[in-house]
Every structure is written in C-alpha cells, then in structure tokens.
C-alpha cells in the first residue's frame, strides 16, 4: 500500500499528529486544545454530538483548514503543506448529493482516484490496472458502466471507497459515510472497511452509531469541543466519557476529564 514516503516521515512516527490545536469560525470556538495522534494502520473512530467539531477536526487533520493555534502534521509534514494528494482517500458527508443527478459512471468516479497521480495525459497500464483492481476489491466490477446516481446508497458508498483504493491511498478518511444507507448494506460496508484496515490501510471514521465504532475501531476519540477520551474501545465503554461529552452543557461547565 505504501507509496513514496516523504523525507521527514520515519517508521514509528504517527501518521497524523494533532498538537494542542485550537480552532474557531470567527468568534465561535469549535475546538480547544485538542491533541491526538493517529498511528499508521490504526482505525480511529471519532465520536461526539452534533456540532461537536468532529468534521472540523478531520478537516484540520487532512490540512484542509489551518488551526488558529497549535500544529497538525500529516505524514511527517505540516498538514497544510502536504501535497501528495494520492495518499489520502476522502469520502465527505455530502459526496453523494452531486452523484445523484450527474451522469457519471462508476468507472469514471473510480478513475478520479488516479487523477492526483495523472491529472493530465494518458492513463498508463498501471493506472488502468489500479482502477480495475479497486473495482474488483470492493465487488463492483459488474456495475462499472452504470451511472452512480442510479445505484443504491450502499453500492454508491463502495464506489467512493474504490476511488480511494484506486489512488493507492495510505489514509482513508470517512465523514459519516453511511447516512441514508440501509442497515444491511451498512453492516457490509463496515465489514469491508474492517478488512481494508486489516491489510494496513489507516482509517479515520466519523460516525453517529457508537456501536459501529466500538465494534470496528482500534482507537476511539470522543470530542465535544475538547477531547473527552482517546484510547481503545474496551476502555471507552467502561468510562463515562460519552455521557460527559453528550450530556454536558458545553458553554457553562469546564470538566477536568483527564
């Protein structure tokens, strides 16, 4: 899975390192003094109530936003300077909205995974092979020439995963990927993510369903503006971090939770 590593990237270093990050939209604070590391090969579940800053934290991790204070490093580089886009596979919350009406085929979407490597010029044999393998890996080869908008929600999510696989990404970031997907397809979807993680792909997942996260993730971070918990699922279910994060009036109280 690993592609050309960056100069500053060393074995044993975290893949993402968020250090004392504070971020706000204008005057509205969203995250305060959040520090968290993502180890290579781990499966991090980000949980927290609506508006807790999960998506913002993910954006900061991927270098799509810059913190007001603190630092974020991604593959050993400052996240906003990191430019090897092919190493990141991202499935955004609203990704499926445009997919519904646009006449774009499954194969066309999966090919987008190769774009960071080959934005111009002809696809090489390796590019085409990567696309075929990605389609194969998530089991949508037979859907390749169908329009994405005419697939079921579960099938469509697999297309986005295949796009990340085609780019041979090292990191898969998922922001509530199964909104509007039926229960059975969700289960299959998360089994697939679980398998991919087992092959060494690092996964960050934002998900409402705590059950999914505790079942599949190797690490859990619970946030609501601040970090309430960062550890493994076994410890997480034994702490009261969840009720604290969800239950507390975030504007008044200042828990000392660590």
């Amino acid at each position: 899975m690993t592609t050309a590593t960056t100069e500053r990237e060393r074995a044993g270093d975290p893949l993402i390192s968020v250090d004392d990050v504070t971020f706000g939209y204008g005057e509205i604070p969203v995250l305060e003094s959040v520090s968290i590391d993502v180890e290579p090969g781990s499966f991090l579940g980000l949980v927290g109530p609506n508006g807790s800053g999960k998506s913002t934290l993910l954006d900061l991790m991927l270098g799509l936003r810059r913190p007001d204070s603190g630092t974020v490093s991604l593959f050993g580089e400052p996240a906003h300077e990191f430019d090897a886009g092919e190493r990141i596979g991202y499935v955004a919350q609203d990704a499926t909205k445009a997919a519904r009406d646009m006449p774009v085929t499954v194969r066309e979407v999966v090919e987008m995974g190769r774009y960071p490597r080959r934005l111009f010029g002809r696809f090489s044999t390796a590019d085409r092979r990567a696309v075929e393998e990605a389609l194969e890996q998530v089991g949508i080869t037979d859907l390749a020439s169908r329009r994405v908008g005419r697939l079921s929600g579960g099938q469509r999510q697999r297309v986005f995963i295949a796009r990340a696989l085609a780019s041979e990404a090292d990191l898969l970031a998922l922001d509530e990927p199964t909104v509007g997907v039926d229960a059975e397809s969700r289960e299959e979807f998360y089994s697939l993510i679980h398998e991919l993680n087992a092959t060494g792909l690092t996964v960050i997942l934002i998900e409402h369903d705590i059950g999914v996260v505790t079942t599949h993730a190797t690490d859990i971070a619970c946030i609501n503006r601040q970090l309430y918990f960062d550890g493994n699922p076994e410890e997480f279910v034994e702490t009261d971090a969840l009720s604290q994060a969800y239950g507390k009036d975030q504007h008044v109280l200042q828990h000392d939770h660590r």
Binding site: A84, G85, A95, A98, V104, Y115, P116
Partner: peptide, 22 residues
C-alpha cells in the same frame, strides 16, 4: 480537453478534490 480531469473532479466532488490536493 486539457483540464478535463480536474474540471470533472471539482464538479463532481470539490471537497475530495481538495483533499487530493487539486
């Protein structure tokens, strides 16, 4: 013709295109 791929990616999924450093 030249910018077909980036234009398609940005049209289809601008957030993912940004994450892919386009």
């Amino acid at each position: 013709t030249l910018a077909y791929r980036p234009l398609l990616y940005v049209t289809f999924d601008a957030t993912a295109a940004r994450a892919a450093r386009l």
